[in-house]
Write a protein that binds this DNA or RNA. Structure first.
Lengths: 188, 188
DNA sequence: AAACTATGAGTCAACTTGTCTCGTAGACTT
DNA sequence: AAGTCTACGAGACAAGTTGACTCATAGTTT
């Protein structure tokens, strides 16, 4: 494993990815072209072609830079922990950088199978984590759930996404509380 | 009002809009260029420029072809009516044409103020209609709501959008029932 | 039938895209 | 520390795209 890598390759690679990400966030996916990225990265155009033959692959790579740090390692009691995680996620979703990546991924997935794959991985990861947390809450008797666990992610995250991306609004703590109540009955 | 319009203008206009919409749905927003649209519409390239100077304006125009027919004129009892409307919306969201327009609008709105305006109008229209329906249900004593009415749209539609656009899944009637229960307590 | 005007076809310069070559500087090898 | 390797930037190139323009024609209006 881990083949030693020429530092030059790594440097250009990182510069290109950062530039592509910057351009995506600042001007939208249409601006992520070999030429624009090369200029933004301070790198030769041929170098960008060398690393990514196609602009859409580069865009996809630029989107998957940061893996979501949410919903990992739940603690008991689960409710306050989950509330906090949802709060953080809601705040992230209002950041242009995060909104741009999320919506671009969802939209691109409609036509690009690779993007669809990555989108599926993302949503599967989130679903798994949320399910894990809710399972823990149920084992400890903190929660009595009233719906299939695979619906929980949609129920919790969907409204926050809609509020931020469609209504251009903010997610109140009250709304988060309400979402938590909608997945089941909480004790303690 | 209603200035008489040269049929030729109307014809090209319609052909161009239809072509732009077709291209958007079939190949994504990047394919909506003056040249591609002109070819798809069977129209001269100059004609497309004449009608829309900029490709993004054309894209926006192509997206706002159909105004959402949902949540209009609620009937009492509201619950079965609302369930049916949500069912229809969920089914629409699984159609590539509708998903493409919705996600492209949400995404484009991040960088294009015009798109943001249209997105805001869309979401405001939906919120108004849902609020109207829920108000009716509350007046007749059918529903006792437990949250600010402006949150209802996000709560009902958000999960369906997430399920279809992020999880690439379908919305079950059970999920819809659950969503309805989450906005308040229903009698009758 | 005459006047009007949107259209398709075509031309054009400026620019972008994808591909290739080559001299150079940075990085591994011994 | 010298020699070999290789990723790089710069530049050249043909092919294609973009946006702006002109003009004869055919479809509309009066």
């Amino acid at each position: 494993m881990d083949t030693p890598v020429d530092p030059r390759t790594a440097r250009s690679r990182d510069a290109i990815l950062a530039a592509a990400h910057t351009l995506l966030v600042r001007e939208g996916p249409a601006s992520v072209t070999h030429q624009r990225v090369a200029h933004e990265a301070g790198v030769g155009r041929a170098t960008v072609y060398r690393h990514w033959q196609r602009a859409d692959h580069l865009l996809l790579a630029a989107m998957s830079g940061s893996d979501l740090p949410f919903f990992r390692s739940p603690t008991s009691p689960v409710r306050p922990w989950l509330h906090q995680e949802l709060r953080k996620l809601a705040d992230e979703l209002t950041l242009p950088a995060v909104a741009a990546v999320t919506l671009t991924l969802m939209q691109t997935a409609l036509w690009d199978p690779d993007a669809a794959t990555r989108r599926n991985h993302s949503s599967a990861a989130v679903t798994t984590r949320i399910t894990t947390a809710l399972d823990l809450a149920q084992e400890t008797g903190e929660l009595t759930t009233v719906l299939p666990s695979e619906d929980a992610a949609a129920l919790l995250i969907g409204p926050m996404l809609y509020r931020t991306a469609m209504e251009a609004g903010t997610v109140s703590d009250m709304l988060i509380s309400h979402l938590l109540d909608s997945v089941g009955t909480w004790r303690d």
